[in-house]
């Protein structure tokens, strides 16, 4: 777990930028912010397996050179799962934002919660 300072800095930068974007009023920025946060979390996981310098892949098997330690494979299993889940959630978020746009005619949170819809399906309902 030594020499991982650059990973820590990267995670911190990604996480704070992502959080900043998540608190934005524009939904597209929220989507990008979420993608950055989930990738920051993935980076945390991959950094957990330690500095890979001088280590071999965990999947080499019988051909492995003697005396060379493998990297810890478990975080890689975790990160695969996390990437798949993050992808599914990002897909859902994209569809939700699109739906909100078609429903209310806006992709901005500050106008989303106005009583009167700007446009879209809700405005058509109001007009009826």
């Amino acid at each position: 777990m030594t020499n991982q300072l650059e990973a820590a800095v990267l995670v911190a930068v990604l996480f704070s930028c992502g959080l900043y974007l998540c608190f934005s009023r524009r939904m597209l920025r929220m989507l990008f912010g979420f993608l950055m946060i989930s990738n920051a979390a993935n980076l945390v996981l991959i950094a957990i397996s330690g500095d890979p310098t001088g280590k071999r892949a965990a999947t080499v098997g019988a051909d492995a050179p003697a005396g060379v330690l493998p990297v810890d494979p478990l975080p890689q299993a975790l990160i695969l799962t996390a990437i798949v889940i993050g992808f599914a959630v990002a897909a859902y978020l994209t569809v939700l934002i699109y739906r909100l746009y078609t429903d209310r005619g806006t992709a901005n949170v500050s106008t989303l919660f106005e009583d009167k819809a700007r446009g879209g399906a809700a405005a058509k309902e109001d007009a009826l």
Partner: peptide
Amino acid sequence: LVGSALFLAVCGFTY
């Protein structure tokens, strides 16, 4: 979403 990402990081820290 933010909670889930944080949970994932907590898993990493725990490990």
